[in-house]
Design a binder for these strands. Structure first.
Lengths: 135, 135
DNA sequence: TGTACTGTAACAAAAATAATTACAGAATGA
DNA sequence: TCATTCTGTAATTATTTTTGTTACAGTACA
């Protein structure tokens, strides 16, 4: 499991806390304690989903592009998710085995169902709700 | 993300299908298409949780230790889970940052809540239900 | 007593993840 | 105008995680 979800949520929380003030990738990286280039990559992704925006050049940085109350954590999860969470499913079971032959399709439907439950749970909370805990 | 959940479920499904007949780690590995030693390791774990049992020596192998209807997939998930599913949480954010200082505790409570939703969803289905799909 | 298994450790290989280096280009302001 | 401080992005390296491999002792069977 990679660390993209917590990193993205950390970034978003910091940006929310900054109340519109621009934060540099160096500053963000310093709080999260990871490499600034990783932060910039993650921000590119968050920007793709319309959560944040950035300003280049001196004095530049990033800021929230929508209200924290309009970003729910399920959306954030969807923005960073890559594989199925329960298994990478890059295995190719033996097609000669009656079980192996079919298992991937059953696993996938199991995964998406379970993952939906996870996302639905995350979606109950917005970034604003989450940020409110930091007091 | 590792492949332990699908591997375990694949093993259990094959054992259920075998209806008590002993299956060797070589046979199981052949269907899953992974290394037999990995299978044996996974079986050790499944045994620890009482799902399967094995017999050593010639003609040995593994078999289900409880009824497939009494194994639900949430239990299987719990048996193989290690990290939090939403992030490894091995990062140490900057303790001087008011956000960084607190975020891990909030992430952890978020994770366990979301993971509970996932497990609850998985628990709706038993191994018997899952195996029934292979017809 | 040979054969076919499991259990388990130690090590190697491969894959995934993260860090680092580097630099072009944008915006600022002295 | 030009040094400075940022972002955007690619390329490379390092680290960590995961998987595969080899090896062998011990067990059970025939």
């Amino acid at each position: 499991m990679n660390n993209r979800f917590p990193v993205s949520l950390h970034i978003l929380t910091l940006l929310d806390d900054a109340k519109g003030e621009l934060l540099s990738s160096d500053y963000l990286a310093g709080s999260i304690n990871i490499n600034p280039v990783l932060v910039r990559k993650e921000i590119m992704n968050l920007r793709k989903f319309g959560f944040v925006d950035s300003k280049e050049g001196k004095g530049g940085g990033s800021f929230l592009a929508k209200n924290a109350a309009d970003i729910n954590l399920g959306e954030v999860y969807n923005a960073v998710k890559s594989d199925y969470i329960l298994g990478q499913n890059k295995n190719e079971p033996n097609p000669k085995c009656p079980i192996g032959k079919q298992i991937n399709q059953h696993l996938i439907s199991l995964y998406s169902d379970a993952e939906n439950a996870l996302i639905q749970n995350l979606s109950k909370q917005t970034l604003a709700d989450f940020a409110l805990k930091f007091k």
